[in-house]
Design a protein around this nucleic acid. Sequence first.
DNA 1: ACGGGTTGCTTATACGTTTAAGCAAAGATA
DNA 2: TATCTTTGCTTAAACGTATAAGCAACCCGT
Lengths: 336, 336
Amino acid sequence: MKKKIALKDIAQHVGVSTALVSYVLNGRAEEKRVGKEIAEKIREAADTLNYRPNQIAKSLKTNRTNTVGLIVADINYRFTSGVTRAIEAEAGKNNYTVILGSSDEDHSKFAELVNVLVNRQVDGLILVPVEKSESQIEWLKKHEIPFVLIDRNFPGIQANHIAVDNFRTAYQCTQHLIKTGHKKIGFINYKTTLYHLRERDRGYFQALEDHGLKNNSKFKKEIREKHVQEDVLRSVQELVAQGCDGIFFATDIIAINGLKYINGMQLRVPEDLAIVSFDEAEAFELFYCPITHARQPLEEIGKIAVNTLMDIINHNQVNRQIYLEAGFVLGRSCGE
Amino acid sequence: MKKKIALKDIAQHVGVSTALVSYVLNGRAEEKRVGKEIAEKIREAADTLNYRPNQIAKSLKTNRTNTVGLIVADINYRFTSGVTRAIEAEAGKNNYTVILGSSDEDHSKFAELVNVLVNRQVDGLILVPVEKSESQIEWLKKHEIPFVLIDRNFPGIQANHIAVDNFRTAYQCTQHLIKTGHKKIGFINYKTTLYHLRERDRGYFQALEDHGLKNNSKFKKEIREKHVQEDVLRSVQELVAQGCDGIFFATDIIAINGLKYINGMQLRVPEDLAIVSFDEAEAFELFYCPITHARQPLEEIGKIAVNTLMDIINHNQVNRQIYLEAGFVLGRSCGE
DNA sequence: ACGGGTTGCTTATACGTTTAAGCAAAGATA
DNA sequence: TATCTTTGCTTAAACGTATAAGCAACCCGT
């Protein structure tokens, strides 16, 4: 790596002090009453010497890194790529860079990432918290480090967060199955304490209850995060055996796995089995029958998250809990 | 944000100089002959005060940020998520963090990202270069900034790079279609100057030639990056009209779009039309017929890229051009 | 008792910025 | 002419860390 040009070099080159150079290059020339010609000379020198400010030094002095840390749950989730893209773009507009980390749904990795990013002096964090990460969140609060939660939150911890309205969306999904004439509606969700997924449970149950199908509750299956494939397979088989005429998948990943197995069975969608999925997946496009599903407003979540974080960083004291409405994409997987 | 504990605070607390604290906390206690008890006291103080080193200050002093910049072409590509995950993990092992940026295949955005990351003093860059980014690459070389290219490279620029063997893989894909008895083999690829995609062309053509199907060349279609959907649709329609019995898709994205339209037509895979795809897509799992495809060794690419970059950063003067072999996943899309 | 080595610490400077404070020279005011 | 203001610059300190250099105090061998 070649030697880099510093303020000092420009100062020497022009024959002035570094202070002047700093003022000029930061656009504070007139405010600081720098002579027109000198200012011009400095700008020229910076140009010909190809000066690029050392952000590290700048940060040390200003105590601002213009960097936000983003910890996602898993980089392969569609949610992740969608929201990361939005965050990246919005952060860029605010002249911020994003440092990305993936916790892989593991709370100790999550804790370590928080640590690393805080040590790197990020100005703030955007987090998709994982199970058992409550203590980390509390720690961040205690140390007054700016952060906002997305996708998930903990009901017991008051924090800024942006997410889709999981209860309502799950309710709508279930209701759609009911309204299209299905009577025995299965539901497959993760076995987890994560609140946002529990809210999807609640939406499902509430919809059943409101439509007099309380007895359907036995059609709810839980799968283990570490055994998605086998558990989904088993669940689908059980639901079919129980005579279900519709299945509501709680996430895109569950849906993809479910459909994969349904593909292998003798069942036709929607004739034999109706399908609704929370979350969209690119893969749906290749299924013979367009899948009806809820679509999270990823762009919006990312955008609001960044702007909220900026507000926290700049003005302090923001209290924002936002539940966004999901879109609902009508396929043909519940009949016409 | 609360006041942070600095070396000075620990020094004061224990009643020693900051130098001593620095030595001890950097594990150079005995080397620097620090008294056992004092060292212990310092460690304790650091612990109770919950000291976390300011990486920014550290970086300024050491001229090392322990950060690598990663610029991907598009965050929604499967290649991206796979390789990012691997890079993240491998970088972590080396005690490095990753700053991610996405160029969205735009060379001016690419240039800007390079700029931002270099200003942030990243120790090195891992890049998926885009069209017309040659000058940026040259610039990096000129300034001796450590970098490695992945996925793509420019034949005219000598640089370290890791990628799959595009020619060979495309050759194999085409050959597979030929060997499974198909005579009129279409190929859909992007219209681009990107070398790695041109290599896929070359693989296709070479396979045709080697098997006496030179006249098949007219079955090659080009699509515009900005108009993937409509161009793929048109291409598939044309190929079918031309009587093709097999299609080789040059990327996962093209394949997904192609299959989407094939789904809507009256064609059965593989009876009416055989399919091979370069690259894997999760979506394939939902297609009624398992798609035969090449699979890039994403893990390996990421891992080697990081290690190569580490070598450049640490020992200088590495010259590594690696072409990895792709896996080949046999589906049923070319017949049994 | 004297020089020389060892032990255990402190002092001081530097990294590349930002920015408050200072200061000389010129112009304005009276 | 004496004083005040403005103009246009420089000086110096600071951010938190690393590290070379310095320096007492002690121990040892002679």
